[in-house]
C-alpha cells in the first residue's frame, strides 16, 4: 500500500511541518490550478522541481520517494492510455509532439500527487482539525473530523477481531453464491454496529462529564498563528501565481521536442 503510505502523516519536526495548514492548503491549491492551466511539459517540469526543496526541508525524502514509486503505476497507466488514444486517433502514427503531450499529462498527475503528498505527509490530522476550528467551521464538524480520524483505526481493529471471532465459530466468508456471500457478512456487521453504538454512548457520557456544551464559545489550547515561515510560503505562492498568469498571457512556451531539435532553432 505504498500509494497510501505516501499520504500518511509521520511525526517529524521540520520547518514545513510547523507551517500553518491553512497556508499549506492555499499553496497546494495554487499548484493545483497552475498545473491544470498549463498543458505544456516545460512549466510542469519546473513546477515539479520547485517543490523538491520542500521535500528536503521537511525531511520526508524516504516516504516521499516511496509514495512516488507507488504513484508510478498510475502515472504509467495515464501515459499508456494517452499514447494509445492518440496512436489510434491519428491513424496509427506517432509524432514527438504526441509523446510530449502524453508525458505532460503524466507529469501533471505527478505534480498534483507530489503536492498533495507533501501536504499530507507534513500535516497531522490534529493540526488539520485545528485549522478547521479556526477557519470558522462549526466546532461540531471539526470535532466530528478529529473523532473520526481517531476512531477509524480502532474500528478497523475491532472489525478484524469480530471477523476472527466468527471465523473461529466456523463462518466461511468466501463460501456460497453471491447472495450467500453477502449474507455471510451479517454476523460481522451486527456486532460491529452494536459496538459502534455502545462506543458512541460511552463517548458521549465521557464528553458530558467533561463539561461539553458549558459555554457557547469554547476556547482552544492551541492557537494557529502565522509565523515568518507562513508569510514566506504565502509570498512564494503569490509569486508563483503572478508568474504563472504573466507567462500564460505573454510568453509562448517552447516545446521540449523543439528545444532538443537544433534544426528548428
Amino acid at each position: 500500500m505504498s500509494f497510501f503510505d505516501g499520504l500518511k502523516f509521520r511525526k517529524v519536526s521540520s520547518p514545513i511541518h510547523n507551517l500553518d495548514p491553512r497556508i499549506k492548503f492555499i499553496y497546494v491549491i495554487a499548484i493545483f490550478i497552475i498545473a491544470i492551466v498549463f498543458p505544456q511539459m516545460l512549466p510542469l517540469i519546473i513546477l515539479f522541481l520547485i517543490q523538491l526543496p520542500f521535500v528536503v526541508l521537511a525531511k520526508i525524502k524516504k516516504q516521499w520517494i516511496r509514495s512516488l514509486r507507488g504513484a508510478a503505476f498510475f502515472a504509467g497507466f495515464i501515459f499508456i492510455i494517452n499514447i494509445l488514444t492518440t496512436f489510434f486517433y491519428n491513424d496509427f502514427t506517432l509524432t514527438a509532439l504526441n509523446v510530449e503531450n502524453a508525458l505532460a499529462m503524466t507529469m501533471r498527475f505527478v505534480v498534483l500527487f507530489e503536492s498533495f503528498s507533501i501536504f499530507f505527509l507534513t500535516t497531522s490530522s490534529d493540526h488539520l482539525g485545528l485549522a478547521f476550528e479556526q477557519s470558522h467551521v462549526p466546532y461540531e464538524f471539526a470535532f466530528a473530523f478529529t473523532t473520526a480520524v481517531r476512531f477509524v483505526p480502532v474500528l478497523a481493529e475491532e472489525a478484524q477481531t469480530i471477523m476472527d471471532a466468527q471465523k473461529a465459530r466456523g463462518l466461511e466468508l468466501e463460501k456460497g453464491n453471491l447472495l450467500k456471500r453477502i449474507r455471510n457478512y451479517i454476523p460481522i456487521l451486527i456486532p460491529l454496529i452494536v459496538s459502534a453504538i455502545r462506543r458512541s454512548l460511552e463517548l458521549a457520557e465521557a464528553m458530558e462529564s467533561r463539561a461539553w456544551g458549558a459555554v457557547k464559545k469554547r476556547t482552544n489550547l492551541y492557537l494557529l498563528r502565522l509565523h515568518k515561515g507562513d508569510y514566506i510560503l504565502l509570498g512564494i505562492t503569490i509569486l508563483l501565481m503572478v508568474v504563472a498568469i504573466y507567462v500564460s498571457f505573454f510568453v509562448s512556451i517552447p516545446l521540449i521536442s523543439d528545444l532538443l531539435n537544433p534544426s528548428v532553432l
Partner: peptide
C-alpha cells in the same frame, strides 16, 4: 474503558478538552 473516554489526537489536547468547553483562557 480507557479507549472510549479519550477523543483528541494528542494527549495534552485531550487533557484540555474540559477546559476548552468551559471557555478558559489559553
Amino acid at each position: 474503558n480507557p479507549e472510549n473516554q479519550l477523543f483528541a489526537l494528542s494527549v495534552e489536547k485531550d487533557v484540555a478538552f474540559g477546559l476548552e468547553n468551559l471557555g478558559m483562557s489559553r
